[in-house]
Design a protein around this nucleic acid. Structure first.
Lengths: 196, 196
DNA sequence: CAACTTACTTACTAATCAGTAAGTAATAAT
DNA sequence: ATTATTACTTACTGATTAGTAAGTAAGTTG
């Protein structure tokens, strides 16, 4: 039924498609790239992409599913889970800052929110889960951070977490429209407020 | 060269096109509607839209230009300009809250930021101006508000303004992905922090 | 070695896209 | 009354879209 050592027999093309699709999604939006764009840049025929991802819905959903998988993996990594709340918050900021260096990509949420209603339903569901789990993780970080005196804010951890993540997502969008400066300004403001 | 009483001879269709295009832009994204969609819903032929807005670039730019005109008008309205900083801030929040009631539309900035690179250059320029002027206006409100003791925050007014607007734009996106609840939570958090 | 599976390509379809050119009916200007 | 302009429609083009069906070469399995 499957090879013992590896289930996947095509180590490359399938992943290369997903990588490029994700890149184009975060840089141009979901409705702004086609199978032809992907095919041309990958040096294959459009039908090859349909072979791996029958419809664009499948491809889009696969992107979000992989990002959700990555989030869970990152969150549970010892070098992240074992950090202090303040360091965890900085680790989160580093993820967003890292987007700037990659041609000012927006985050997954920021890339999909505006076009949300045009997305396939499974993709919508995965994105909701992604955002919910990330918010819950940050709420926990903020709760512990305030309890230990490392972070300062008013209101509930859940509310603060929602606010902060929303701000970060928006900050990457502002960076795209203008330049990196407003992103740095906004993150500076966040740190100023949280780091007592 | 022009009629004395009115420059525009077509009072309706031109505006109806712009209204519907704006609606679709804010509800589905710029790359998710076509001249055919517009034409069908307006009961005209696609060529009629090309007559008023030769290319989609023209149409898109017209939407942003009008919003910029509206922003300036709103900002300079006596019933807005003469308010106290705190009331001005609440007036701003009311604008965003109003989007929720309109089928959870995102704001102009939030609708266009992700797809920014696929937009015609004049549209990009107008959106930058729109965002810059709104941010400058809010920075001024926040500056006066803190000086008079009505608003409380740390950091520069410009940084706080950028942060707040980014958060509001993002909050409408979160409302679209989930429901109105997170928007209300985030706005509640903003008010909690600013209203000392 | 034969049958099967994998990972494609070739060749196509039907729909949709933005955009154009030419025509037309109604109104306005001279 | 004639001409010009406005606001369209009809009819089209060529490009692009997602998606499919059939073929094929290479590798895998029994």
């Amino acid at each position: 039924m499957s090879t013992p050592s590896a289930t996947k027999l095509s180590p490359d093309t399938r992943t290369r498609i997903l990588d490029l699709a994700e890149e184009l999604l975060l840089e141009r939006g979901f409705n702004a790239f086609s199978y032809q764009h992907l095919a041309k840049e990958l040096g294959v025929k459009p039908a090859a992409i349909h072979y791996h991802y029958p419809s664009k819905d499948d491809l889009g959903t696969a992107i979000v599913t992989r990002q959700l998988r990555r989030l869970r993996k990152w969150r549970d990594l010892p070098r992240v889970a074992d950090l202090s709340p303040r360091e965890q918050f900085d680790a989160l900021l580093a993820v967003y800052e890292n987007h700037l260096g990659h041609d000012r990509r927006v985050c997954l949420f920021g890339a999909l929110a505006a076009d949300f209603r045009t997305l396939p339903v499974p993709m919508q569901a995965e994105l909701r889960t992604f955002n919910r789990e990330l918010t819950e993780w940050l709420a926990q970080v903020l709760a512990v951070g305030r309890a230990t005196g490392a972070l300062r804010y008013v209101g509930s951890p859940a509310a603060k977490a929602a606010q902060v993540l929303t701000t970060l997502s928006g900050a990457l969008q502002v960076a795209r429209v203008h330049d990196e400066t407003p992103f740095q300004v906004i993150v500076g403001q966040l740190r100023l407020e949280l780091f007592s």
